[in-house]
Amino acid sequence: MSATSLLASGTDVGAEIVFWVCATLCVIGALGMLLSRKPVHSALFVALTMINLAILYVALQAPFLGMVQIIVYTGAVMMLFVFVMMIVGVDASDSLIETIRGQRWAAIILVLAFAGLLIGAIVNGLSGVPEPSLEAANSQYGGNLQGIAKIIFTDYIVAFEVTSALLIIAALGAMLLAHRERHTPKPTQEQRSIARFARYAATGELPGNLPPAGTYARHNAIDTPALAPDGSVVPESVPGPLQERGNVRPVDVAAEVEVDEISEGHTVVTVDDDEAGEQR
């Protein structure tokens, strides 16, 4: 199908190319969402699909909706997903083994049947229908946005009010659900101070503020522990989750040599041989 023949047939080549590219990317995004093992990869594929859908909306003469799609859906909703993934655990991945017998095969067959029925119905129903255009509607009130606004605030005003109530309720609901109830009273500052000094007396733990990550260390990455003024590693400077997962980078004494050399003005090329064997 060459461009000239397409032009000669009178169809809008640009729209065609846009459609086919975006459609393909949409489907790839959907498949990727389906088949990824890690949830973060799934989220990224979904975002791909949504952006392509936004482009398709614009191609369908719905520019306002396309923008809203990017801002609300991709921007807000997918980011919410990513936040929760961080809480739940980025490493959690599904095993490939299906626990329910026959579920996978039955699902594939049924979904194929479903898709086949739908596509068959669509193709049969909409054949021989004239090409549409939204020019008239879009320019009736001086633009797509104005047209939509007219409809929302006159025909669907009640739906609009109800939806706003829904939003409020949703926000309240989310707050309620995510709220962690304290079972014991929150310790006051005085109580915390007393406890801190009690710990110092018992274990020698320094009662002062902990240094932030990377203090006196070569790097201020969150997984590099800070050094105490005397050069010892302060393990508490790395956040708890990272500690538990063992993502703490070791700080070795050789770094101290680097410190000395840099302070003397030499450039240092370091070859680290920490456990991960990675280049810094």
Binding site: Q103, A106, A107, L110, F114, L117, L118, G120, A121
Partner: peptide, 24 residues
Amino acid sequence: QTGFARSYALSMLGGAVLVIAALI
């Protein structure tokens, strides 16, 4: 009644396919 939500979702899909086929 397996207790798994996914089995129930599967049967829902099966029903939906039947309804659509009937409508068509």
